[in-house]
Design a protein around this nucleic acid. Structure first.
Lengths: 138, 138
DNA sequence: TACAAATATGCAATATAGTTTCATTTATAA
DNA sequence: TTATAAATGAAACTATATTGCATATTTGTA
């Protein structure tokens, strides 16, 4: 008998410490990708390095994936339940230049891309930029 | 009567100083995107800030475009002649995890991407990762 | 329970890329 | 020639990411 957060961590082979449960909860409540800074801002009591390593552990265990959205701050977002962080699981991300939030566009996978002869692809970092629905004027 | 490099700079409203001509030449000779660090390594006599500002000027004047390939070092590559750095000019980039070079894949434009309702897109940073033809084994 | 080993955390220091300030030099134009 | 504008060089500074090490906590085992 464990709570769903602990269960999720256990399913990913991550020991469910108090800190990790809180960080996971935070990630689940946000519908946008989060940065280390935003975690720091939300968890004053926790140390930066702990939060940093928590994110790294989550990423390593494929609970979250990282997004380099070009803001200079790496963002992290929860993977889908079925995610193995392989090419087939990759999706576009959208960075809103107004609210500065970054979202996963999981409704469509990335299209097949014709690579030059001899090239092989294993990963992708695909970030679209513009204005999100919430920030759109008019 | 001016050399092609100067002409290219002039066409982009960039005053052709000695330094800028050399940097442009360097960019044209490389078939991969270059970083500030690689410029520093190639131009020992020039100051970092000069090279930095040269890149920024080139980018501003749409002579080159920047690529955040996730290595932590911004890369820069020459735009195509016809480029206006608008959405239609965007293309994928490929970062080889072996030789660490980053290339423009200009042979195809990015496909049309279905955005959530209300989202509008103005830019993109699309980086594919894997192994390039030169580094492919076998 | 008690102890040993493994793991997680907190604090501090470090690394690195990017950026800015300001003085000096160089180019441009009246 | 002189005044003005622009480019360059040197140095300092900022921000993010990362690591080392001591302490605390958890876990497994007798």
């Amino acid at each position: 008998m464990q709570n769903p957060l602990e269960e999720k961590l256990n399913n990913n082979n991550i020991k469910p410490t108090a800190m990790r449960i809180l960080v996971l909860q935070y990630l689940m409540e946000k519908n946008a990708a989060v940065s280390l800074k935003s975690l720091e801002a939300s968890f004053h009591k926790a140390d930066t390095s702990t939060l940093y390593r928590t994110l790294k552990t989550f990423e390593e265990k494929k609970l979250i994936h990282s997004i380099d959205d070009g803001t200079g701050q790496m963002k992290y977002a929860l993977c889908l339940e079925t995610c193995n962080c392989v090419l087939a699981d990759q999706h576009y991300h959208f960075h809103c230049t107004v609210c500065e939030e970054t979202f996963c566009l999981t409704s469509q996978n990335i299209p097949s891309i014709e690579l030059p002869k001899g090239f092989s692809m294993t990963q992708a970092n695909l970030v679209l930029k513009g204005v999100c629905a919430h920030c759109e004027v008019g």
